[in-house]
């Protein structure tokens, strides 16, 4: 196309009456003497005519909103199953996982304070401890309290206070821990009061997490199917 021909934008705007009077006069003057541009205009006019003839899509349903649109509808929950059984199960599993994780985290480990407070009995039985729990560093177990904070030796150092009473030196609870109060309680009370093993909490949390993920996935899938039917 030569530079003095009418550009597509001018032709398109001409079709919609969106040229200024001066532009329109110029364009029309050119069109009068230029068959190529007239063909261009005619093709564009028919294109627009075909586009305008495209049927407007009629909605098959109403898009009315209900009284209170919960803000959460945008996110994950919105895409989950409308019959909320799976959603509830997934939520319960996720919540339980959080509870287990929190309980696990909140359950005090053998920290420096307890290490100091009970260092004497711990040291008394340090040899037993190292014998029953191979992971314990013998040096740390027999060292003075300040050293007990190094690594995970703080917890093993406390263990002997319980383990002798449990009479289960081979039992696999090397990470078992307790607060000073509970530890004292454990010393005087039946050994069943000892806190649950950390490993149980972690395994439980991982299991619950996987369960929640599976349920959420299933629920999302069901939600998509339901959404298509709706």
């Amino acid at each position: 196309m030569q530079s003095d021909h009418v550009g597509t934008e001018a032709l398109s705007a001409l079709l919609d009456g969106h040229l200024s009077d001066r532009e329109r006069e110029t364009v029309e003057a050119h069109l009068a003497g230029c068959p190529a541009c007239r063909i261009d205009l005619e093709q564009l006019r028919r294109t627009v005519s075909l586009l305008q003839a495209m049927p407007a899509a009629a909605p098959a349903r109403s898009f009315a909103v209900r009284e209170a649109v919960p803000p959460a509808r945008v996110g994950l929950v919105h895409r989950m199953a409308r019959p909320p059984l799976l959603r509830a199960l997934a939520g319960a599993a996720a919540a339980l996982m959080v509870v287990v994780l929190l309980a696990d985290a909140a359950w005090p480990r053998g920290d420096v304070t307890t290490g100091i407070g009970l260092s004497s009995p711990a040291m008394l039985t340090a040899r037993e401890s190292s014998a029953s729990t191979p992971t314990v560093n013998p040096a740390a177990a027999s060292a003075p309290p300040p050293d007990a904070r190094a690594g995970d030796s703080g917890a093993p150092a406390l263990e002997p206070a319980i383990q002798p009473r449990e009479a289960a030196p081979g039992e696999e609870t090397p990470e078992s821990v307790a607060t000073p109060i509970e530890l004292i309680g454990a010393v005087e009370a039946p050994p069943s009061l000892a806190p649950p093993s950390l490993r149980v909490g972690q395994v439980g949390a991982v299991f619950l997490g996987i369960l929640a993920a599976i349920l959420i996935t299933a629920s999302l899938r069901a939600g998509r199917r339901a959404g298509r039917r709706a």
Binding site: T8, E9, L11, S12, A13, D16, H18, Q43, L44, T47, V48, L50, L51
Partner: peptide, 17 residues
């Protein structure tokens, strides 16, 4: 809008042709 519309129409025309 005018220029986007024109370019889009021209492209559709080319495809129709």
């Amino acid at each position: 809008v005018r220029s986007r519309l024109a370019r889009g129409r021209a492209r559709v025309r080319d495809i129709l042709v």
